[in-house]
Design a protein around this nucleic acid. Structure first.
Lengths: 212, 212, 212, 212
DNA sequence: AATGAATGAGCGTTCATTCAT
DNA sequence: GATGAATGAACGCTCATTCAT
């Protein structure tokens, strides 16, 4: 829509190669977010990316693979950021809080991407089972590690499985995201929701004092 | 194809029609669960239901409406059961525990239905936004009411929004269900996951002693 | 294939069921003959057959299979006729003459079909290698048998392989058909060409007198 | 991709261009032979020729024209060779034998080219009708002339049309080639097939003695 | 001349939906 | 009501061709 302004790149060429791949991915995020994977047309994505339909197939083998690559690419990126953020926080409980803020923060910073991950991740059982699982599992593992480390450090109760907690926590965040994505944002916003979720979860994971 | 020969149901059979509608819904649950909404063919559902393709359109306006009706029908039924179960439990915290057990219990009792609700609910943003929301909201409201009642009864902390808690809790349960549905059942099973989730959530919702 | 028994439509109804398959085949012959397999559009065939595009796929799995079925169906039919005709002729040389007349006669009676067989048979090496071969081989075998029988009966020279003769004869007929199909009909027509070909071939296959 | 480094052909090399054109033609023969005209991709031919896709269009106007040029070029060359060979043979019957050997010999010497001529010649009715005909006709004419000359010289029977014989003979050779190309080579090989074909044809074309 | 990324028209095929029986 | 053959709009994908570099 914009973009052409000066296509006039005679000399310099700020947008390098691979550029196109990225443009397509960005367009795909936007379109998938708006209409869901199945209702999105390859031609729409192409148009949104400002390329010809066929061009998409120079970068992705199929529409399916476009979604797959999208997950792969974006989640890898998110994982990198999240890992760094977590390392910068020393306390276990604070790390949990950080994860919560991070995941909900996505919704405000990159709403479309969040919606794609939240909603489209489940568009296809097949996709989900075949591809998305690897990175998704990595994400859950990261959360589970944070929990487990804090348990070993004596910061959290040890009578619950880190993996179960991680999955439930992810689900809780996803659930909040879903209602937000569907247009019923919590009054007070995600920030308030995140704070409250963290309050409950952290109190719930607290080690119990000597007496009950 | 065969099968009809004698439709000859035992004796009377006042609801020949209702019968068929239900058969179609049951078939739809099975097929949607296995392949997802978009990958399911109307003809497959017809075959699974033992009716002709066209017959489905005597009971449902479209494939979309079939999914919609499925939610409507099943969730209404679930809500009835859940409401009754909750009324039978007097204590707020126990009610929360009951909800958790109920929702996870679905996965074992009616795995297909659970998978449809868990996975297919998100197949289509449009569907989700347009139709499914009503009953879904009712379900969340039920959870929120239980929380709110318990807060008013002084059984749970009051500094968190019942709706936020309800959504997060629903999400957490959904998250556990998802990993189960995808074939990575938690070791120890859903029962153990449910118990741990309840432990954490209830401790998290506990009113804090005099201090704090 | 069966199915027709009584298609017993209410009253009249000149065009019976399975009718549609035949209509599609007939349309395919016409269209393939005019434009060749690859240049023919499924939608054109549908239109020529007076059915919807999708209908073709109720009777044939793909465009490829349509061509394949066409060969199968038509050549089977031709083989039946040819076998009967040959049996009615006692003398070996006369049988050879009969085959020649029969194959060239096709060109006048069913010019489109002849063109499809002559030209389209080779459209796709893959098709040719995979499917068409069986019936085609049967056809060649029939010719080879006629030659071999006549050799055993002492009617033809025995120093040439029946299979080689069959293939060459088929090729010769096919070659005459090709130039005809391409619009350069031999002056004097196919009949004359057939007679001359038979004259040459039969003299060529004659047993030599006492001296070599 | 590599290869260019030094295009540095030994010394002089006036036909840098012709070089590429020839490489493309050679690649086309190979690819067309393996997969047929329609199933061959221009990009495959480019790759096989070691040039960029676009380069092909510097030498040929279209994929169609590439096939056309191929025929033109190769058949012209074959005609030259065949003409010279025939001139070197004085006797009519021996010339016929020479033609047979020549055409079948192609199959062993340049199998790919033979397959392209034999199979691909018919890939497209349109191509066949529009372009290929000219050279093809020339080839047939050469054969017809040989027959006619021999008839005038009293070496062959005169009651058959040289053109009909030429077409039938070409077809016979083509038919033998086809079965060979399809992978059912005659036991004894083409040589034996050629000898037998020549035996039959020449006996068939013999002038009959005064009596029967 | 040579390149090869980009194009976009065009096609085979699918499948939800209809409707004559 | 019930059927299932027929429909045809719609879409993913291919690939010959172009053209900026």
């Amino acid at each position: 829509m914009t973009e052409r302004r000066f296509s006039a790149r005679k000399r310099d060429e700020p947008r390098a190669a691979g550029d196109k791949r990225e443009r397509i991915l960005r367009a795909a995020v936007k379109v998938f977010a708006r209409k869901g994977f199945y209702a999105s047309r390859v031609s729409e994505i192409a148009k949104a990316a400002g390329v010809a339909d066929g061009t998409i197939y120079l970068y992705f083998k199929s529409k399916d693979e476009l979604l797959t690559s999208l997950f792969e690419d974006r989640i890898t990126r998110l994982l990198d950021v999240l890992r760094r953020e977590i390392e910068a926080v020393p306390s276990g409980p604070d790390r949990v809080r950080r994860i919560i803020e991070f995941q909900l923060g996505l919704l405000e910073g990159e709403r479309d991407l969040a919606e794609v991950i939240t909603v489209n991740l489940r568009q296809s059982t097949r996709l989900l089972k075949q591809y998305a699982t690897k990175r998704f599992t990595e994400y859950l593992d990261l959360m589970a590690h944070v929990i487990a480390d804090a348990q070993h450090a004596g910061e959290l109760r040890t009578d619950v499985s880190p993996r179960i907690v991680a999955r439930a926590l992810f689900g809780a965040l996803d659930g909040l995201a879903l209602t937000w994505a569907l247009g019923n944002p919590e009054p007070g916003g995600l920030k308030r929701a995140g704070t409250q979720l963290a309050d409950v979860v952290l109190q719930g994971l607290e080690r119990r004092g000597p007496a009950a």
